[in-house]
Design a protein around this nucleic acid. Sequence first.
RNA 1: GGUGAGGUUCCCGAGUGGCCAAAGGGAUCAGACUGUAAAUCUGACGCGCGAGCUUCGGUGGUUCGAAUCCACCCCUCACCA
Length: 430
Amino acid sequence: MSKLSLIEDLKARGLIAQTTSEEELVEHLGSGRVTLYCGFDPTADSLHLGHLVPLLMLKRFQEYGHRPIALVGGATGLIGDPSFKAQERQLNSAEVVQDWSNCLKRQISQFIEFNDNGGAILANNYDWTSNVDVLSFLRDIGKHFSVNKMISKESVKQRIEREGEGISFTEFTYQILQSYDYQKLNELYDCTLQIGGSDQWGNITGGIELVRRMNGRSVHGLTLPLITKSDGTKFGKTEGGAVWLDPKKTSPYAFYQFWLQTPDADVYRFLKFFTFLDVARIEAIEAEDQAREGRPEAQRILAEEVTRLVHGDDALAGARRITEALFSGDHSTLDADDYAQLQLDGLPASQVPAELADLPLTTLLTEAGVATSGKQVKDALQRSAVVINDEVCSLDRNMDAATLFSKESARFERFFLVKLGKKKHHLFYL
RNA sequence: GGUGAGGUUCCCGAGUGGCCAAAGGGAUCAGACUGUAAAUCUGACGCGCGAGCUUCGGUGGUUCGAAUCCACCCCUCACCA
Protein backbone atom coordinates (compact mmCIF):
# COMPACT_ATOMS: atom_id res chain seq x y z
CA MET A 1 0.00 0.00 0.00
CA SER A 2 1.42 3.36 -0.94
CA LYS A 3 1.86 6.02 1.66
CA LEU A 4 -1.16 8.14 2.26
CA SER A 5 -1.06 11.82 1.62
CA LEU A 6 -1.12 14.01 4.68
CA ILE A 7 -4.75 14.95 4.30
CA GLU A 8 -5.74 11.38 3.54
CA ASP A 9 -3.96 10.25 6.66
CA LEU A 10 -5.58 12.92 8.81
CA LYS A 11 -8.96 12.03 7.43
CA ALA A 12 -8.44 8.37 8.10
CA ARG A 13 -7.60 9.27 11.67
CA GLY A 14 -10.68 11.39 12.04
CA LEU A 15 -8.53 14.37 12.81
CA ILE A 16 -10.22 16.88 10.58
CA ALA A 17 -13.31 18.67 11.77
CA GLN A 18 -13.52 21.38 9.14
CA THR A 19 -11.30 22.97 6.56
CA THR A 20 -11.47 25.85 4.21
CA SER A 21 -11.95 24.63 0.66
CA GLU A 22 -10.46 21.19 0.84
CA GLU A 23 -9.53 21.14 -2.81
CA GLU A 24 -7.48 24.27 -2.52
CA LEU A 25 -5.93 23.13 0.72
CA VAL A 26 -4.86 19.80 -0.77
CA GLU A 27 -3.42 21.55 -3.74
CA HIS A 28 -1.64 24.05 -1.54
CA LEU A 29 -0.12 21.34 0.62
CA GLY A 30 0.99 19.49 -2.47
CA SER A 31 2.69 22.51 -3.93
CA GLY A 32 5.64 22.52 -1.58
CA ARG A 33 6.54 23.34 1.94
CA VAL A 34 3.77 25.11 3.76
CA THR A 35 4.18 27.12 6.92
CA LEU A 36 1.37 26.60 9.39
CA TYR A 37 0.64 27.67 12.91
CA CYS A 38 -1.29 26.78 15.96
CA GLY A 39 -1.70 28.98 19.01
CA PHE A 40 -1.48 27.96 22.64
CA ASP A 41 -2.69 30.43 25.20
CA PRO A 42 -1.00 30.38 28.59
CA THR A 43 -3.88 29.55 30.88
CA ALA A 44 -1.71 27.53 33.25
CA ASP A 45 1.94 26.78 33.81
CA SER A 46 1.74 23.66 31.67
CA LEU A 47 -0.04 22.29 28.66
CA HIS A 48 -2.47 19.49 29.27
CA LEU A 49 -3.94 16.65 27.27
CA GLY A 50 -6.32 18.94 25.48
CA HIS A 51 -3.34 20.60 23.85
CA LEU A 52 -1.76 17.36 22.83
CA VAL A 53 -3.76 16.75 19.68
CA PRO A 54 -2.97 20.11 18.08
CA LEU A 55 0.62 19.81 19.21
CA LEU A 56 0.95 16.40 17.61
CA MET A 57 -0.79 17.82 14.58
CA LEU A 58 2.03 20.28 14.11
CA LYS A 59 4.37 17.35 14.32
CA ARG A 60 2.40 15.42 11.74
CA PHE A 61 2.71 18.30 9.33
CA GLN A 62 6.39 18.54 10.09
CA GLU A 63 6.82 14.87 9.28
CA TYR A 64 5.31 15.54 5.89
CA GLY A 65 7.85 18.25 5.25
CA HIS A 66 5.95 21.33 6.31
CA ARG A 67 7.07 24.02 8.69
CA PRO A 68 5.12 24.45 11.92
CA ILE A 69 4.97 27.53 14.06
CA ALA A 70 3.95 27.06 17.65
CA LEU A 71 2.56 30.33 18.84
CA VAL A 72 2.47 31.07 22.52
CA GLY A 73 -0.29 33.52 23.30
CA GLY A 74 1.50 35.87 25.61
CA ALA A 75 -0.86 38.61 24.46
CA THR A 76 -4.07 36.71 23.87
CA GLY A 77 -3.55 35.01 27.21
CA LEU A 78 -3.92 38.41 28.81
CA ILE A 79 -7.34 38.83 27.24
CA GLY A 80 -9.01 35.41 27.40
CA ASP A 81 -10.70 33.57 24.58
CA PRO A 82 -14.51 33.70 24.92
CA SER A 83 -15.08 30.98 22.31
CA PHE A 84 -17.83 28.69 23.54
CA LYS A 85 -17.10 29.62 27.11
CA ALA A 86 -20.22 29.99 29.17
CA GLN A 87 -18.78 32.64 31.40
CA GLU A 88 -16.47 35.59 31.40
CA ARG A 89 -13.04 34.60 32.53
CA GLN A 90 -10.96 35.91 35.33
CA LEU A 91 -8.04 37.95 34.06
CA ASN A 92 -4.62 36.83 35.14
CA SER A 93 -1.92 39.31 36.02
CA ALA A 94 0.69 40.20 33.44
CA GLU A 95 3.46 38.65 35.50
CA VAL A 96 1.66 35.37 35.80
CA VAL A 97 0.88 35.21 32.10
CA GLN A 98 4.47 36.06 31.32
CA ASP A 99 5.65 33.31 33.57
CA TRP A 100 3.23 30.79 32.11
CA SER A 101 4.23 31.80 28.59
CA ASN A 102 7.80 30.88 29.40
CA CYS A 103 6.70 27.56 30.81
CA LEU A 104 4.79 26.73 27.65
CA LYS A 105 7.68 27.78 25.48
CA ARG A 106 9.98 25.42 27.28
CA GLN A 107 7.49 22.62 27.08
CA ILE A 108 6.66 23.02 23.43
CA SER A 109 10.29 23.15 22.46
CA GLN A 110 10.76 19.67 23.87
CA PHE A 111 8.16 18.42 21.49
CA ILE A 112 8.95 19.78 18.14
CA GLU A 113 12.32 20.15 16.50
CA PHE A 114 13.08 23.82 16.50
CA ASN A 115 16.79 23.83 16.10
CA ASP A 116 17.28 22.31 12.67
CA ASN A 117 17.88 24.97 10.08
CA GLY A 118 14.66 26.21 8.62
CA GLY A 119 12.80 24.02 11.08
CA ALA A 120 9.89 24.87 13.28
CA ILE A 121 9.42 28.29 14.78
CA LEU A 122 8.42 29.24 18.28
CA ALA A 123 6.74 32.63 18.48
CA ASN A 124 4.94 34.74 21.01
CA ASN A 125 2.22 37.10 19.93
CA TYR A 126 3.14 39.45 22.73
CA ASP A 127 6.06 40.47 20.52
CA TRP A 128 3.89 42.17 17.93
CA THR A 129 0.91 43.07 20.04
CA SER A 130 2.30 44.76 23.09
CA ASN A 131 3.55 47.83 21.30
CA VAL A 132 0.54 48.52 19.14
CA ASP A 133 -1.11 51.69 20.39
CA VAL A 134 -4.86 51.98 20.68
CA LEU A 135 -5.38 54.34 17.81
CA SER A 136 -3.36 52.29 15.37
CA PHE A 137 -5.16 49.22 16.55
CA LEU A 138 -8.54 50.77 15.96
CA ARG A 139 -7.67 52.42 12.67
CA ASP A 140 -5.44 49.85 11.04
CA ILE A 141 -6.86 46.63 12.34
CA GLY A 142 -10.26 47.28 13.87
CA LYS A 143 -11.49 48.96 10.73
CA HIS A 144 -11.40 45.63 8.93
CA PHE A 145 -13.84 44.04 11.31
CA SER A 146 -17.57 44.24 11.12
CA VAL A 147 -19.23 44.10 14.48
CA ASN A 148 -22.27 42.61 12.83
CA LYS A 149 -20.14 39.73 11.71
CA MET A 150 -18.37 39.42 15.02
CA ILE A 151 -21.52 39.12 17.06
CA SER A 152 -23.02 36.59 14.71
CA LYS A 153 -20.16 34.16 15.31
CA GLU A 154 -21.37 30.96 16.87
CA SER A 155 -18.51 31.01 19.36
CA VAL A 156 -19.77 34.11 21.12
CA LYS A 157 -23.44 33.75 20.33
CA GLN A 158 -24.43 32.02 23.51
CA ARG A 159 -22.68 34.67 25.52
CA ILE A 160 -24.55 37.37 23.71
CA GLU A 161 -27.92 35.67 23.56
CA ARG A 162 -27.99 33.63 26.67
CA GLU A 163 -29.81 35.12 29.55
CA GLY A 164 -27.77 35.52 32.68
CA GLU A 165 -24.45 35.89 30.91
CA GLY A 166 -22.67 38.58 29.04
CA ILE A 167 -19.41 39.30 27.38
CA SER A 168 -17.01 42.09 28.11
CA PHE A 169 -15.55 44.20 25.36
CA THR A 170 -12.18 42.77 26.34
CA GLU A 171 -13.11 39.23 25.50
CA PHE A 172 -15.13 40.30 22.53
CA THR A 173 -11.95 41.79 21.12
CA TYR A 174 -10.14 38.49 21.37
CA GLN A 175 -11.02 37.41 17.87
CA ILE A 176 -9.45 40.53 16.49
CA LEU A 177 -6.21 39.83 18.30
CA GLN A 178 -6.08 36.28 17.07
CA SER A 179 -6.85 37.38 13.55
CA TYR A 180 -4.02 39.84 13.81
CA ASP A 181 -1.69 36.99 14.76
CA TYR A 182 -2.49 35.21 11.54
CA GLN A 183 -1.97 38.36 9.54
CA LYS A 184 1.32 38.99 11.26
CA LEU A 185 2.57 35.42 10.86
CA ASN A 186 1.60 35.51 7.23
CA GLU A 187 3.61 38.65 6.77
CA LEU A 188 6.61 37.54 8.82
CA TYR A 189 6.88 33.88 7.91
CA ASP A 190 4.62 33.37 4.95
CA CYS A 191 2.33 31.35 7.14
CA THR A 192 -0.62 30.14 5.07
CA LEU A 193 -2.44 27.68 7.28
CA GLN A 194 -3.80 27.93 10.76
CA ILE A 195 -4.92 24.90 12.70
CA GLY A 196 -6.74 24.67 15.99
CA GLY A 197 -9.50 22.97 17.92
CA SER A 198 -12.95 23.05 16.40
CA ASP A 199 -13.86 25.82 18.83
CA GLN A 200 -11.31 27.97 17.00
CA TRP A 201 -13.08 27.96 13.68
CA GLY A 202 -14.53 31.41 14.17
CA ASN A 203 -11.21 32.88 15.16
CA ILE A 204 -9.46 31.17 12.27
CA THR A 205 -11.87 32.39 9.62
CA GLY A 206 -11.59 35.84 11.12
CA GLY A 207 -7.85 35.66 10.60
CA ILE A 208 -8.19 34.39 7.06
CA GLU A 209 -10.31 37.39 6.23
CA LEU A 210 -7.92 39.82 7.81
CA VAL A 211 -5.02 38.34 5.85
CA ARG A 212 -6.97 38.75 2.66
CA ARG A 213 -7.81 42.34 3.43
CA MET A 214 -4.47 43.48 4.75
CA ASN A 215 -2.06 41.28 2.84
CA GLY A 216 -4.19 40.52 -0.17
CA ARG A 217 -3.51 36.83 0.16
CA SER A 218 -5.73 33.82 0.34
CA VAL A 219 -4.80 31.54 3.22
CA HIS A 220 -6.23 28.39 4.75
CA GLY A 221 -7.64 26.99 7.94
CA LEU A 222 -8.20 23.57 9.43
CA THR A 223 -9.76 22.52 12.69
CA LEU A 224 -9.46 19.36 14.71
CA PRO A 225 -12.38 17.61 16.29
CA LEU A 226 -13.13 17.94 19.94
CA ILE A 227 -11.94 14.80 21.69
CA THR A 228 -14.93 13.16 23.25
CA LYS A 229 -15.42 10.09 25.32
CA SER A 230 -18.01 7.47 24.58
CA ASP A 231 -19.65 7.89 27.96
CA GLY A 232 -20.07 11.61 27.51
CA THR A 233 -17.76 12.68 30.30
CA LYS A 234 -14.99 15.10 29.66
CA PHE A 235 -11.82 13.75 28.16
CA GLY A 236 -8.50 14.29 29.90
CA LYS A 237 -9.63 14.52 33.47
CA THR A 238 -8.78 12.33 36.38
CA GLU A 239 -9.57 12.46 40.04
CA GLY A 240 -6.75 14.91 40.51
CA GLY A 241 -8.01 17.19 37.76
CA ALA A 242 -6.39 17.75 34.39
CA VAL A 243 -3.75 15.44 33.03
CA TRP A 244 -0.72 17.66 32.46
CA LEU A 245 2.16 17.21 30.11
CA ASP A 246 4.57 18.49 32.72
CA PRO A 247 6.02 15.44 34.50
CA LYS A 248 6.19 17.42 37.71
CA LYS A 249 2.44 17.97 37.64
CA THR A 250 1.42 14.57 36.32
CA SER A 251 4.05 11.91 36.76
CA PRO A 252 4.85 9.69 33.78
CA TYR A 253 3.50 6.80 35.84
CA ALA A 254 0.17 8.56 36.38
CA PHE A 255 0.19 9.55 32.73
CA TYR A 256 0.77 5.97 31.64
CA GLN A 257 -1.97 4.78 33.95
CA PHE A 258 -4.37 7.33 32.54
CA TRP A 259 -4.04 5.88 29.07
CA LEU A 260 -4.06 2.32 30.28
CA GLN A 261 -7.51 2.92 31.73
CA THR A 262 -9.00 4.08 28.45
CA PRO A 263 -12.38 2.45 27.83
CA ASP A 264 -12.57 -0.05 24.97
CA ALA A 265 -15.07 2.13 23.21
CA ASP A 266 -12.53 4.92 22.86
CA VAL A 267 -9.19 3.24 22.59
CA TYR A 268 -8.94 2.72 18.84
CA ARG A 269 -10.02 6.26 18.12
CA PHE A 270 -7.47 7.51 20.60
CA LEU A 271 -4.75 5.45 18.96
CA LYS A 272 -5.50 7.32 15.78
CA PHE A 273 -5.57 10.69 17.50
CA PHE A 274 -2.62 10.42 19.82
CA THR A 275 -0.09 8.14 18.16
CA PHE A 276 1.86 8.06 14.94
CA LEU A 277 1.06 4.44 14.29
CA ASP A 278 -0.27 3.85 10.78
CA VAL A 279 -4.00 3.71 10.54
CA ALA A 280 -3.67 0.31 8.90
CA ARG A 281 -1.66 -0.89 11.87
CA ILE A 282 -4.27 0.41 14.30
CA GLU A 283 -7.00 -1.35 12.41
CA ALA A 284 -4.98 -4.53 12.57
CA ILE A 285 -4.67 -4.14 16.33
CA GLU A 286 -8.39 -3.73 16.60
CA ALA A 287 -9.02 -6.81 14.53
CA GLU A 288 -6.63 -8.84 16.63
CA ASP A 289 -8.22 -7.68 19.85
CA GLN A 290 -11.60 -8.63 18.56
CA ALA A 291 -10.46 -12.03 17.47
CA ARG A 292 -8.94 -12.72 20.85
CA GLU A 293 -11.19 -13.26 23.80
CA GLY A 294 -10.67 -11.13 26.85
CA ARG A 295 -8.43 -8.25 27.49
CA PRO A 296 -7.40 -6.12 24.53
CA GLU A 297 -3.87 -5.04 23.80
CA ALA A 298 -4.86 -1.61 22.55
CA GLN A 299 -4.75 0.17 25.89
CA ARG A 300 -1.22 -1.01 26.55
CA ILE A 301 -0.05 0.05 23.14
CA LEU A 302 -1.74 3.41 23.49
CA ALA A 303 -0.24 4.02 26.91
CA GLU A 304 3.21 3.09 25.73
CA GLU A 305 3.11 5.13 22.58
CA VAL A 306 1.81 8.30 24.13
CA THR A 307 3.97 8.11 27.23
CA ARG A 308 7.02 7.64 25.06
CA LEU A 309 5.99 10.52 22.87
CA VAL A 310 5.49 12.90 25.75
CA HIS A 311 7.98 11.73 28.35
CA GLY A 312 10.53 9.63 26.50
CA ASP A 313 11.80 6.09 26.72
CA ASP A 314 13.28 6.24 30.19
CA ALA A 315 10.15 7.61 31.78
CA LEU A 316 8.10 5.00 29.97
CA ALA A 317 10.35 2.27 31.31
CA GLY A 318 9.87 3.64 34.81
CA ALA A 319 6.11 3.79 34.42
CA ARG A 320 6.04 0.23 33.20
CA ARG A 321 8.24 -0.94 36.05
CA ILE A 322 5.87 0.50 38.61
CA THR A 323 2.84 -0.85 36.84
CA GLU A 324 4.38 -4.29 36.62
CA ALA A 325 5.31 -4.27 40.30
CA LEU A 326 2.00 -2.99 41.59
CA PHE A 327 -0.49 -4.74 39.40
CA SER A 328 1.12 -8.12 38.99
CA GLY A 329 -0.43 -9.06 42.31
CA ASP A 330 2.80 -10.35 43.70
CA HIS A 331 4.95 -7.93 45.62
CA SER A 332 7.21 -10.58 47.06
CA THR A 333 9.55 -10.40 44.11
CA LEU A 334 10.46 -6.82 44.91
CA ASP A 335 13.76 -6.35 46.66
CA ALA A 336 14.86 -3.32 48.61
CA ASP A 337 16.34 -1.65 45.57
CA ASP A 338 13.11 -2.15 43.70
CA TYR A 339 11.22 -0.26 46.36
CA ALA A 340 13.64 2.61 46.15
CA GLN A 341 13.31 2.52 42.38
CA LEU A 342 9.53 2.76 42.57
CA GLN A 343 9.87 6.09 44.21
CA LEU A 344 12.44 7.27 41.70
CA ASP A 345 10.15 6.17 38.90
CA GLY A 346 7.44 8.45 40.14
CA LEU A 347 5.26 6.38 42.42
CA PRO A 348 3.81 8.83 44.94
CA ALA A 349 5.70 8.41 48.19
CA SER A 350 5.80 9.93 51.64
CA GLN A 351 7.76 9.54 54.79
CA VAL A 352 5.93 8.03 57.72
CA PRO A 353 5.49 10.75 60.37
CA ALA A 354 7.60 10.31 63.47
CA GLU A 355 4.71 10.53 65.92
CA LEU A 356 1.98 8.03 65.16
CA ALA A 357 0.39 7.43 68.54
CA ASP A 358 -2.68 9.64 68.12
CA LEU A 359 -2.73 9.83 64.37
CA PRO A 360 -5.76 8.20 62.76
CA LEU A 361 -5.16 6.47 59.45
CA THR A 362 -7.74 8.73 57.93
CA THR A 363 -5.60 11.75 58.68
CA LEU A 364 -2.36 10.04 57.79
CA LEU A 365 -3.53 8.96 54.36
CA THR A 366 -5.28 12.21 53.64
CA GLU A 367 -2.20 14.21 54.44
CA ALA A 368 -0.11 11.98 52.23
CA GLY A 369 -2.50 12.77 49.40
CA VAL A 370 -3.82 9.23 49.00
CA ALA A 371 -7.36 10.52 49.47
CA THR A 372 -8.85 13.97 49.57
CA SER A 373 -10.78 13.60 52.78
CA GLY A 374 -10.90 11.40 55.83
CA LYS A 375 -14.39 10.38 54.84
CA GLN A 376 -13.11 8.71 51.72
CA VAL A 377 -10.52 6.81 53.70
CA LYS A 378 -13.15 5.79 56.20
CA ASP A 379 -15.39 4.53 53.46
CA ALA A 380 -12.51 2.58 51.98
CA LEU A 381 -11.57 1.10 55.36
CA GLN A 382 -15.13 -0.05 55.86
CA ARG A 383 -15.09 -1.81 52.54
CA SER A 384 -11.74 -3.44 53.03
CA ALA A 385 -10.31 -1.29 50.30
CA VAL A 386 -7.21 -0.24 52.21
CA VAL A 387 -4.33 -2.65 51.97
CA ILE A 388 -1.01 -2.12 53.69
CA ASN A 389 1.79 -4.42 52.60
CA ASP A 390 -0.71 -6.89 51.21
CA GLU A 391 -2.71 -6.94 54.39
CA VAL A 392 -6.29 -5.72 54.42
CA CYS A 393 -6.83 -3.01 56.97
CA SER A 394 -10.23 -2.52 58.53
CA LEU A 395 -11.84 0.45 60.21
CA ASP A 396 -11.12 -0.73 63.75
CA ARG A 397 -7.43 -0.32 63.09
CA ASN A 398 -7.87 3.32 62.28
CA MET A 399 -6.12 4.39 65.48
CA ASP A 400 -3.48 1.73 65.13
CA ALA A 401 -1.05 3.51 62.85
CA ALA A 402 1.82 3.00 65.26
CA THR A 403 1.64 -0.77 64.87
CA LEU A 404 0.78 -0.80 61.21
CA PHE A 405 3.70 1.44 60.38
CA SER A 406 6.22 0.03 62.81
CA LYS A 407 9.67 -1.01 61.76
CA GLU A 408 8.71 -4.61 62.45
CA SER A 409 5.91 -4.65 59.93
CA ALA A 410 7.86 -2.79 57.29
CA ARG A 411 9.31 -4.44 54.22
CA PHE A 412 13.08 -4.37 54.47
CA GLU A 413 12.54 -2.44 57.70
CA ARG A 414 11.62 0.63 55.69
CA PHE A 415 8.83 0.32 53.19
CA PHE A 416 5.07 0.15 53.22
CA LEU A 417 3.05 -0.26 50.09
CA VAL A 418 -0.36 1.19 50.68
CA LYS A 419 -3.19 0.50 48.31
CA LEU A 420 -6.49 2.34 48.40
CA GLY A 421 -9.03 0.89 46.08
CA LYS A 422 -7.93 -1.05 43.06
CA LYS A 423 -5.74 1.49 41.42
CA LYS A 424 -4.36 3.94 43.92
CA HIS A 425 -0.95 3.07 45.31
CA HIS A 426 1.29 4.98 47.61
CA LEU A 427 4.68 4.17 49.04
CA PHE A 428 5.49 5.04 52.63
CA TYR A 429 8.97 4.81 54.04
CA LEU A 430 10.54 5.20 57.45
C1' G B 1 -29.01 56.58 36.27
C1' G B 2 -34.09 53.90 36.17
C1' U B 3 -36.80 49.21 36.21
C1' G B 4 -36.95 44.05 36.70
C1' A B 5 -34.61 39.19 37.73
C1' G B 6 -30.96 36.81 40.38
C1' G B 7 -26.47 35.20 43.75
C1' U B 8 -27.70 27.80 47.63
C1' U B 9 -22.88 22.75 49.14
C1' C B 10 -17.76 20.66 42.63
C1' C B 11 -21.70 21.79 38.52
C1' C B 12 -26.98 22.17 37.36
C1' G B 13 -30.98 23.01 40.42
C1' A B 14 -35.05 22.52 44.61
C1' G B 15 -35.85 24.79 49.17
C1' U B 16 -39.31 30.92 51.45
C1' G B 17 -39.19 30.56 59.85
C1' G B 18 -38.06 24.77 63.06
C1' C B 19 -38.91 18.04 60.26
C1' C B 20 -32.20 21.46 56.51
C1' A B 21 -25.78 19.59 56.27
C1' A B 22 -30.12 21.34 52.94
C1' A B 23 -34.66 17.42 47.57
C1' G B 24 -33.37 15.78 42.64
C1' G B 25 -29.87 15.17 38.69
C1' G B 26 -24.77 15.25 36.96
C1' A B 27 -19.68 14.67 38.09
C1' U B 28 -16.51 12.18 41.52
C1' C B 29 -14.81 8.20 44.97
C1' A B 30 -15.33 3.17 47.01
C1' G B 31 -17.56 -2.09 46.96
C1' A B 32 -19.62 -6.41 44.05
C1' C B 33 -19.11 -8.25 38.91
C1' U B 34 -14.89 -7.89 35.31
C1' G B 35 -9.99 -7.21 31.95
C1' U B 36 -6.53 -1.54 36.11
C1' A B 37 -12.60 -1.60 30.26
C1' A B 38 -17.95 -0.79 29.64
C1' A B 39 -22.81 -1.72 31.51
C1' U B 40 -25.39 -2.91 36.01
C1' C B 41 -26.36 -3.05 41.27
C1' U B 42 -24.76 -1.03 46.23
C1' G B 43 -22.63 2.71 49.35
C1' A B 44 -20.24 7.51 50.16
C1' C B 45 -20.29 12.37 48.60
C1' G B 46 -19.18 20.14 53.78
C1' C B 47 -15.24 18.91 57.61
C1' G B 48 -13.95 15.62 61.71
C1' C B 49 -11.83 8.37 63.86
C1' G B 50 -15.40 10.42 67.30
C1' A B 51 -18.09 13.87 70.60
C1' G B 52 -18.97 17.48 67.43
C1' C B 53 -17.83 21.66 64.19
C1' U B 54 -18.55 25.07 59.98
C1' U B 55 -22.06 26.37 55.40
C1' C B 56 -26.66 28.73 51.61
C1' G B 57 -23.02 36.63 48.17
C1' G B 58 -21.41 40.19 52.65
C1' U B 59 -22.49 42.76 57.24
C1' G B 60 -25.77 43.83 60.94
C1' G B 61 -30.80 42.97 62.95
C1' U B 62 -35.79 40.50 64.28
C1' U B 63 -36.76 35.67 66.64
C1' C B 64 -36.43 30.60 71.57
C1' G B 65 -34.95 29.34 66.44
C1' A B 66 -33.14 32.00 59.74
C1' A B 67 -30.74 29.49 53.57
C1' U B 68 -35.68 31.23 54.51
C1' C B 69 -38.10 37.67 57.59
C1' C B 70 -35.94 43.06 57.87
C1' A B 71 -31.96 46.86 56.75
C1' C B 72 -27.79 48.24 54.33
C1' C B 73 -23.91 46.77 51.13
C1' C B 74 -21.33 43.91 47.15
C1' C B 75 -21.70 41.24 42.57
C1' U B 76 -24.22 39.33 37.96
C1' C B 77 -27.81 39.66 34.16
C1' A B 78 -31.87 41.77 31.16
C1' C B 79 -34.59 45.88 29.45
C1' C B 80 -34.88 51.12 29.31
C1' A B 81 -32.24 55.82 29.46
